[in-house]
């Protein structure tokens, strides 16, 4: 898979945050390419712009300048509807705080992106959600409410949910930031397996240098730029 066309390409990304005197230049002309089947880590100190970059690449925020292509679709100038559709079809998110819907079971949380996509019927959808939960080791807890799961389990449900529509690119923002060492390793191994065995591209934002070093490629950031 390495050597295929990049799943994501970004050129000269700039982003300011804040208003007036508090306005800060967070991203200063970043460019990158992400190839299929690889696990990338973006690391750097707090406030260097890692998460801002991830939100831009995940189409949750808009850059002030620069271009983004995902699966060859130019997204930088796309409408809100096109970007929303791309998030559903092409992207999966895992956040530091899992953000599961607490009123729903683990299975129902995983079903949410598939219901919006509408590609599968109800029975295949449920079968796929169950299979994804099996793959993250939570098949037996599919009917539990999100609030009845431990922090590590909730994060694994969030990974299963991110994979629901088989996205080309999985974006993870400090996915282990809220977990103990054992759960952190478990989640990282899961992400690596998704990249190497399932062919997903994984972009992992972390301030943990140890985890960053275990990625296929590490992009170090400082003051809104990549550094060697």
């Amino acid at each position: 898979m390495p050597g295929d066309a990049p799943i994501l390409r970004a050129e000269n990304l700039h982003r300011h945050l804040g208003q007036g005197d508090a306005r800060a230049h967070i991203l200063r002309g970043l460019s990158l390419e992400l190839n299929p089947g690889r696990l990338y880590a973006v690391s750097g100190p707090s406030g260097c712009g890692k998460s801002t970059l991830l939100y831009l690449l995940g189409l949750l925020d808009r850059q002030d300048n620069g271009d983004i292509w995902i699966a060859s679709e130019r997204m930088s100038a796309a409408s809100d509807a096109e970007r929303t559709s791309a998030r559903n079809r092409l992207l999966g998110f895992v956040f530091q705080f899992h953000f599961l819907l607490p009123e729903f079971t683990a299975l129902e949380n995983v079903l949410l992106p598939m219901r919006k996509h509408g590609r599968l019927g109800p029975a295949p959808m449920r079968a796929r959600a169950q299979q994804l939960l099996d793959e993250v080791g939570l098949g037996g807890k599919a009917q539990r409410l999100a609030t009845q799961l431990s922090g590590g389990e909730q994060q694994r449900v969030a990974i299963a949910r991110a994979l629901a529509n088989d996205p080309a690119l999985l974006l993870a923002d400090e996915p282990t930031g809220n977990l103990d060492q054992q759960n952190s390793n478990h989640v990282f191994e899961l992400l690596a397996e998704l990249a190497h065995q399932k062919g997903h591209t994984v972009l992992l934002v972390t301030h943990n240098p140890e985890l960053a070093n275990r990625a296929d490629s590490t992009l170090r950031m400082s003051d809104g730029k990549f550094v060697n």
């Binding site: 995940g58 949750l60 809100d80 509807a81 929303t84 559709s85 998030r87 559903n88 079809r89 998110f93 956040f95 953000f99 819907l101 949410l112 992106p113 919006k116 996509h117 949910r161 529509n165």
Partner: peptide, 9 residues
């Protein structure tokens, strides 16, 4: 989170 999954406005 629903919006990030692709749910529209």
């Amino acid at each position: 989170i629903l919006r990030s999954m692709g749910y529209t406005r």
